[in-house]
Write a protein that binds this DNA or RNA. Structure first.
Lengths: 238, 238
DNA sequence: TCAAAAGTGTTAGGCATACACCCATGT
DNA sequence: ACATGGGTGTATGCCTAACACTTTTGA
């Protein structure tokens, strides 16, 4: 059986003259947000085989005719499927092999990215080829064996990577608004880690590494003592 | 223009019915070894365009008809090109985009792995489609702007990852023989890091984490006090 | 007796935790 | 007054670097 594809095909023109088929390449996105006091991951219910009806990481096919880079592809897919920007992208891993998606292709390659969404943009519209989108508690999802493919393990890995960033005070700025109080910042870190942080040492570490700077004159008022407002100093990329 | 490929092609059969070409997918390997007192990386002089004559990481095309996984593909390529096993594989990053290899393909994807070779297997035979193989000091290579593609940056990343493992005493067992003295182990770590380590604290850290165990009765003799011989305890994977 | 490497103990400092305490505001 | 969260200081412990010291062999 022979199929025809256009000239953009990925046939390898090796010295031997043989042409090799290339893998079915997908990009998957583990989108995190904080809600209800804990880390949440965005899952999509699959609309088609394989694993139709199961929850999975949202993702899509890499389009070499559209995407200028892997990251650009991830952004395109997020727009199509989730209708949102996905800031703070970070590549986690590439996994591939036969039998990962046997009904569609003999050899499936997935490159997995992580993204962080601020608490503002939690309302997402299910887009192309997605039946339903929902936030799931991240820890639960990582341990859920009923997820499609190997996505549970991928989520666990994404959680680890994100928590490691928080522990190193490489702050996941995606979770943060432009400015914030130190109390808000600490709460965000605690919810990400899923454990308590000591206030005093947290602030000392922030100060030592010059991670945040006060916005002079700006204070947050409420039912208690006003708090100094801060913003991130070294502007993180993305 | 139309090309024909066989049925193993990677054409996506999406719901829309459109078929998408898949990227030209390569696997690159940063093989490290210790020689002449420092970390060395194995480079291959490219035999063909693009960048013919330039030094580059050895690599090859992913063959979905042959490779059961990305790692298996890396092992196959190492056999073909380098004629050796590559233990202690670790995936570093995937990079992709148009213009990475413009003469061969409109869109090139590379998945980069790191491998560690013991001091025993430094003699390698240049294999298929490789003009010449040579060890280069890793730090120099990482800074060398004359390397093909973006391989200098990839090497820098591989060095960082390997040094981080040594700092965490997640020992790069590929560099080690079956058994060794603590002095030999320390020298290996120092050469990998490119800096001195304090003997006393190094040994205490090893002891606290129960990383090595003595081979009772076995001693290394020489022109000085005999040394206890050790081996790794928790057998590392790969 | 000396060189060289093995192996051990002691001290000091950096950094994080735990916890106590004061401060400023709205109710 | 007091509850609430902001903000700061101190004591303690863990880990590591630095360095001094002893031990054991071959030459």
């Amino acid at each position: 059986m022979q199929l025809t594809v256009n000239a953009m095909s990925t046939v390898s023109t090796s010295k031997t003259g043989r042409r090799h088929p290339m893998p079915f390449t997908r990009l998957e996105i583990a989108v995190f947000a904080l809600a209800e006091g804990q880390l949440q991951v965005l899952l999509a219910r699959r609309a088609e085989a394989p694993d139709a009806g199961k929850w999975a990481l949202p993702g899509g096919v890499l389009r070499i005719d559209l995407d200028e880079s892997l990251e650009a592809g991830v952004r395109r897919i997020a727009h199509e499927r989730l209708g949102t920007e996905v800031p703070y992208l970070r590549q986690l891993i590439a996994v591939g092999g036969p039998r990962r998606d046997p009904t569609r292709t003999p050899w499936a390659l997935s490159i997995v990215y992580r993204a962080l969404l601020g608490s503002g943009d939690l309302r997402l519209a299910a887009g192309k080829r997605v039946e339903e989108l929902a936030w799931h508690p991240a820890e639960t999802a990582a341990a859920d064996r009923s997820l499609a493919f190997d996505h549970g393990a991928l989520i666990a890995r994404a959680i680890d990577a994100t928590r490691a960033e928080v522990r190193d005070l490489d702050l996941p700025a995606g979770f943060l608004p432009e400015s914030f109080t130190l109390g808000e910042l600490q709460t965000m870190c605690e919810q990400t880690l899923g454990q308590h942080i000591d206030k005093s040492s947290f602030r000392r570490r922030l100060a030592d590494r010059e991670i945040v700077e006060p916005v002079v004159g700006e204070m947050r008022t409420g039912a208690n003592r006003p708090a100094q407002i801060y913003r991130l100093r070294r502007s993180a990329p993305n």
